[in-house]
Deep mutational scan, measured.
Amino acid sequence: TRVETATETAWISLVTALHLVLGLSAVLGLLLLRWQFPAHYRRLRHALW
């Protein structure tokens, strides 16, 4: 049971790290898009909202 718990903890930390990385890359990508294509971003936002 001790090994299982350790594996579970490792998986949880791995998944958390993955989610953090994905979230950060998504935010960075959005910022980059907004910085590179302001007109396109505004049009996209206008279409979405």
Results as ranks from 00 to 15, higher is better:
Q36S: 09
R34A: 07
T16N: 04
S25N: 15
L44D: 04
V15E: 03
T9D: 03
Q36A: 11
R43E: 05
R42P: 01
V3R: 01
E4Q: 14
V3A: 02
W35Y: 15
V15F: 06
L30H: 05
L48C: 14
H19R: 01
V27G: 09
G23A: 14
L28F: 11
L31I: 14
W11E: 04
E8D: 15
Y41D: 03
P38C: 12
T16M: 14
V21R: 02
V15A: 06
L24Y: 02
T9G: 11
A39Y: 11
A47K: 09
V21I: 14
W11V: 10
G23N: 06
L28W: 09
W11R: 06
H40Q: 14
V15K: 07
L28A: 12
L14S: 06
Q36V: 12
V3N: 00
A26W: 08
A47D: 05
G23V: 15
F37P: 00
L24N: 00
A26K: 08
L44G: 03
L31R: 02
L48R: 02
L20I: 13
A17T: 08
E4F: 10
L33F: 10
L31T: 12
H19I: 15
R42I: 03
L33M: 08
G23P: 09
L18K: 04
R34S: 05
I12H: 07
A26T: 09
L14G: 06
G23R: 01
F37M: 05
H40E: 05
A39T: 13
L28Y: 04
L28N: 04
L14F: 11
Q36P: 06
T5L: 06
R2I: 09
L48M: 12
I12A: 08
E4A: 11
Q36K: 14
L33N: 00
T9F: 09
L22T: 14
A17K: 00
W49C: 00
E8W: 03
T5S: 01
Q36Y: 10
W35L: 15
V27E: 01
R34Q: 02
V27Q: 03
L31A: 14
V21D: 05
P38W: 04
W49Y: 15
A17W: 08
V3T: 01
R42N: 07
L44S: 03
L14K: 05
